[in-house]
Nucleic acid binder design. Structure first.
Lengths: 333, 333
DNA sequence: CTGTTAGCGCCTTCAG
DNA sequence: CTGAAGGCGCTAACAG
């Protein structure tokens, strides 16, 4: 690998001159620049990115941490992140947090290999984030509640969304509503559960722990939870799945048992993933403003990078998407 | 940010001692090591990744270049890449090639910011790849044909897949088969088209350019191409979409016009993306061994990193997935 | 406009 | 086992 030294030597100039020329500094004559450029080309010179990062102390990149690169992303969210990042002339790289403390993600966080990071990976511990947060290193978390001076929290209003979902069912006369939950350690799940319980309570419908079944946000867990539900003697009138993936698994379980949705039972999901529109029946669900969340996250990073003050908590609201998985027998109201 | 120097000073040892201690070198006494570790902790020391990369010249990371981080990936492929990478103790990062020559992707390629790279991004030019290829920098391309000593090509057998698709239709007595193509500059598309033409030719079915409509692999283009097809007076018996995304767009166009699939027209896709199973009707398509392709790609990278010799071209075969979008009126054969 | 020079933070011989 | 010193490749004052 040729270094800038070689280029300078070949071009017959000083190293700094070569560096300036290669970095399009204004203070180099066209002739010298050309000479340097030719030397560089002929040596097939490529600068060593690490060396220049080391000097610059600025990477011009922001990293997005995902729990699984191949996972069912919120691709809209990523798009938001991506667009805002590149609109600001920054690079975006994504890395996965698989592997716990040894993961690439943790390395990026701890070693500050980027100018800012957005986290959407439940398997990154709060501790790592807290450890890494520093005044000049903005971290925005999209998936948890974290109080710290230098971490910013962007959250969609899960509680309100769950309340909407539950009320929608309640409004249609259903009272027995099962809740298939996400993993217990999930902040999102916890908020959704409390939205569900609040809505029930407000209408004086008792919460029954028999109707709360634990899943883990995967399609399979939705499938098996639903099987369990079916195995109980008595089917509820509706089921609220804490996310769409599980709802889709649930739909499959119902289909296999010949239970018709929404005629025999209503189902509602949460997230509005792409698939939801295509399953049968199309899933009624709560949409999260995913693009907005991603875009806002990066926006905030740039604001703090620019030395501006920002809030440490943002709340985005959800929307109910009405499709065909909920039976409509609301006659009056 | 505390540096190793600060740690050494606080621990009352030399810098090198601190470095050794922190890197678990054998030649440090337990007592000293403990002292150093404590100093590091109390200073909240984090090593500067760039500086150490600069020295080490090895990054222990491989990068996956995607045309669009939020795009409809082949998540199976990514999973293959991810698993093999982490099984080898390497980090994986993904970056997008949006932005052409200024993209993060190009930077990674040219500046050798990783030990190896796998490319799945049609918008990266061959030239950039060729420029970056070096004996010690394995690049494997999954989406193009590229002859170069230091780039490895893994490819699924698009031609054979397209041939299978076409024959499947032909076998069912259909002769008028439209082909909705991908972008002209796509290598995959080109191979699929030629598989289609070969199959036709072999059965002495004339190729009609009227039946070849240009799309660009997006759902929208499938939708609009199909509209164009419908607008022509006479509907063919079947249409072969060069990928599933377009087929799904096509299905929608047919549905809007009240044209029933497969009763009025048969459709077949290519890729077998996740959605294909869920659309209505479920799409018959050609599955690519995506996980295998991704896993193989990274495998090969590690082989060359280990100094082993590898082929420069690998071909993976496809499989026909029979679902319900093709009418079955094959009586005999 | 160009060359000299001093580090960026870390790792690693090489002597003690 | 430890300390001093050199250097990875590049950038950015600072002088000419």
């Amino acid at each position: 690998m040729a270094t800038i030294k070689d280029v300078a030597k070949l071009a017959g100039v000083a190293i700094s001159t070569a560096s300036y020329a290669l970095n399009n500094s204004a203070k180099i004559s066209a002739a010298t620049r050309k000479k340097v450029e030719e030397a560089a080309r002929s040596l097939n010179y490529q600068k060593n990115g690490f060396a220049s990062d080391l000097k610059r102390t600025q990477t011009k990149t922001i990293v997005l941490i995902l729990s699984d690169l191949s996972g069912p992303y919120y691709s809209e969210l990523i798009k938001g992140v991506q667009e805002v990042t590149s609109a600001n002339g920054y690079d975006l790289i994504a890395c996965s947090s698989i592997g716990g403390q040894q993961s690439t993600a943790v390395k990026f966080l701890k070693e500050k290999r980027a100018d800012g990071v957005v986290v959407l990976a439940h398997n990154i511990t709060d501790e790592v984030i807290l450890d890494s947060a520093r005044p000049d290193f903005p971290i925005v978390v999209l998936d948890r509640n974290l109080q710290h001076d230098h971490v910013i929290q962007v959250e969609v209003d899960n509680t309100e969304g769950a309340r909407m979902a539950t009320n929608y069912l309640l409004d249609r006369g259903m009272k027995e509503i099962a809740y298939i939950s996400g993993p217990n350690n999930s902040h999102d799940n916890e908020r959704r559960l409390s939205g569900y319980r609040e809505a029930l309570e407000k209408r004086h419908v008792p919460f029954s722990s028999r109707l709360k079944i634990s899943g883990d946000f995967t399609r399979d867990s939705g499938y098996f939870s639903t099987k369990m539900l079916i195995a109980q003697q008595h089917l509820p009138e509706a089921v609220f799945f804490a996310n769409d993936e599980m709802a889709i698994g649930g739909l499959q379980a119902f289909a296999e048992k010949g239970i018709r949705v929404p005629d025999d039972i209503s189902v509602i999901g949460f997230d509005d993933i792409q698939l939801s529109e295509y399953v049968s029946p199309p899933l009624t669900t709560i949409r999260q403003p995913k693009y907005e969340a991603g875009a806002l996250a990066v926006h905030l990073i740039f604001q703090v990078l620019a030395g501006e003050k920002v809030e440490d908590h943002y709340n985005l609201s959800t929307e109910l998407i009405e499709r065909s998985s909920v039976k409509n027998h609301s006659y009056s109201r």
